[in-house]
């Protein structure tokens, strides 16, 4: 991977009328001789979901790290909320990251901090919120993921599923408009995975969060794409999504660093491509 991003990308700033929250334009990346991504392009509209599928090592997680500016691409351009991030310096990226949350593989919780401190990290350390405000928000988001009673526990005392849910709470605590999920359900039992899936659906439909979900768990991907959360008087309900909602969730299939499919859940199910069929079976 080159340290400096290429400036050869020709794309101009996305038109204001379209207002996509994320634009990935012909992004390429290689580690020495190994090509990880080759001219990958897609956009994410506000409130929509993009599910990136692919085999292990196909470059799925890499895309999230590029969007967040943790890595720099060799070529192409990436825009987040209208700001080009692939050429930004670390200090400037901090402002862009204020509106983006990321759920890392295995959670990446800070071992030395309690659950409450993990969730409220950004509020306590990087914002002007008072301690009372931060504490209230931490309790609110932990309640959202059903872990309010775990606020004083250490990450080592949590199960795998609980760690993921704390990671989701941490990512959403500062109310970002974009959430990136990196294998948030991998390795979880089906019941816990569904709980995490429901959190993703709730955040998208009840909080208006745009999301990119990287996974190779098809069941979870289809669940998020084909369900919706609806607010009710006594809370919320998860139900099968209507056709419009289903269209707002798009799938991308990565094969050896190249986008080999892009479409909604129905189109993915109907795909005839041999690789896709073998992946779906």
């Amino acid at each position: 991977m080159s340290v400096e991003a290429s400036n050869t990308a020709t794309m101009e700033r996305p038109a204001a009328a379209e207002q996509p929250v994320i634009v990935v334009d012909k992004v390429s990346l290689a580690f020495d001789d190994k090509v990880v991504l080759k001219e990958v392009s897609f956009t994410l509209m506000p409130g929509h979901t993009k599910v990136i599928l692919g085999a292990s090592g196909s470059g799925k997680s890499t895309i999230l790290k590029l969007i967040l500016g943790l890595w720099k691409p060799d070529g192409g351009a990436i825009w987040v909320n209208g700001e080009r991030v692939d050429t930004m310096r670390e200090l400037e990226l901090m402002k862009v990251r204020a509106d983006v949350g990321m759920v890392f593989q295995e959670g990446a919780l800070f071992d030395s901090l309690t659950v409450g401190e993990n969730v409220g990290y950004k509020l306590y350390e990087e914002s002007d919120s008072s301690l009372e405000q931060a504490r209230a928000r931490v309790e609110e988001v932990l309640g959202f993921v059903g872990l309010r009673d775990f606020i004083e526990r250490m990450p080592s005392e949590l199960s795998g599923g609980q760690r993921r849910r704390v990671a989701i709470a941490r990512a959403m605590a500062a109310k970002p408009r974009i959430l990136l999920y990196d294998e948030a359900t991998t390795g979880l039992d089906p019941i816990t995975a569904i709980t995490v899936d429901e959190e993703m659906v709730k955040l998208r439909d009840l909080e208006g969060v745009s999301s990119i979900i990287v996974t190779h768990q098809l069941r979870d991907a289809f669940f998020v794409a084909t369900h919706q959360a609806v607010r009710q008087r006594d809370g919320y309900a998860i139900s099968p999504a209507d056709a419009r909602k289903c269209d707002e969730a798009e799938f991308i299939m990565l094969k050896e660093g190249v986008v080999s499919f892009e479409g909604n859940a129905a189109e993915l199910r109907a795909a005839k491509d041999t690789y896709l069929r073998s992946f779906l079976s």
Partner: peptide
């Protein structure tokens, strides 16, 4: 090193913290 391999350093950066300063 443990923080690097468990992605905690990347998580710090994602949360808007410069790992060198912190």
């Amino acid at each position: 090193g443990s923080m690097v391999v468990t992605d905690q350093i990347n998580a710090l950066r994602a949360l808007g913290t410069d790992p060198v300063r912190k």
